[in-house]
Simulated scan of single mutants.
Amino acid sequence: MSLSTGEESRMREEVLLADRDGVLEVTINRPEQRNAMTKAVAEAIAAAMDQLESSDHLRCAILTGAGGSFCAGMDLKGFLRGELPVDARGGFGGICTWTPRKPIIAAVDGPALAGGFELALACDLIVANQNARFGIPEVKRGLVAAGGGLVQLPRLLPRALAMELALTGDPIGAERALELGLINRMTDGPAIDAARELAQRIVANGPLAVGASKAIVRDSWLWEVDRLNQHQRAHVEPVFRSEDATEGARAFAEKRAPVWKGR
């Protein structure tokens, strides 16, 4: 599906897409169910990520939810029917096991619970309204946070705090999440507004450099210590050889804004 600037369209009706100034806004549109995740929505989000990856015009994505909620996790009614809200490649919500090279910002209003929290953690940055809540309450329903929460939280928090969130299932508010470094911004207005401002700061930068930087930050914890430079070089060298690198240096010398080509 191709999107023109400013155009908004439905993908499988429950996911809305909008292209705004090079930023792909993806909105889960199930407000009556607090945007609980279904298989159809997961596959639609994964397809939107393919759109982001393949379009030279799109530089960044914002993932949010309609109606004052981000995502309340797995749709339990669907689960009782035997449905799992996963995409074959992207996992839960379409992005928990794969994301595009370009950055994704989660704009969180209201609850981001269970798989909703895992969905936000799968994004690269999180902006939240002050009334947002985060947690993995699966144990309260006899389930396990299998969408990445139990893996990601011990890497982001001290072990004791990650264990408390996992074993009690109790949520934390946006202010506490900010204190712990789990989110980037807290706002008293709609999270989407702050996310758009952050997205434009990213879009202003060289797209190749942004993609390489995301890849290094996200993947470097997997690299062997004695091969760190080798792994990083594979991402860095193509950027330094690119037209954008030359343009960035020239624009700085000429005291003007760079014109990125993504090559």
Rank of each mutant, 00 (worst) to 15 (best):
V151Y: 12
T187C: 07
K140L: 07
N205Q: 15
D193V: 03
V210Y: 10
L198K: 03
E224K: 12
A215Q: 11
W223V: 12
L143G: 05
R227P: 15
R133T: 01
N131L: 11
G206Y: 10
V225F: 15
L157E: 13
P158E: 01
M186I: 05
P137Q: 06
A174L: 01
L178C: 08
D193Y: 05
S220I: 04
E197L: 13
G206W: 10
E138D: 15
A160E: 02
L165T: 04
A212Y: 11
K140I: 02
G211S: 06
V139G: 08
Q152I: 00
W223P: 14
S213M: 09
I126H: 00
I136C: 09
A128S: 06
G181E: 10
Q230C: 15
N229S: 14
A145K: 01
R176L: 00
A174C: 01
N229V: 12
G181Y: 06
R141A: 04
R201G: 14
K214A: 04
N229A: 11
L165Q: 10
V139M: 03
D170S: 10
L121P: 04
M163Q: 12
L121G: 04
I136A: 08
P154M: 02
I202H: 08
R185H: 14
M163N: 06
R227C: 14
S213L: 07
G147C: 05
R201P: 13
Q230D: 15
N184Q: 11
A177R: 00
P137T: 02
L178P: 00
L119T: 01
E175G: 02
A177H: 06
L222C: 09
D170K: 03
D226G: 13
W223G: 09
F134Y: 11
A120F: 03
A166T: 07
A174M: 03
D226F: 15
K140T: 08
N129C: 01
G169M: 04
P171E: 10
A166N: 07
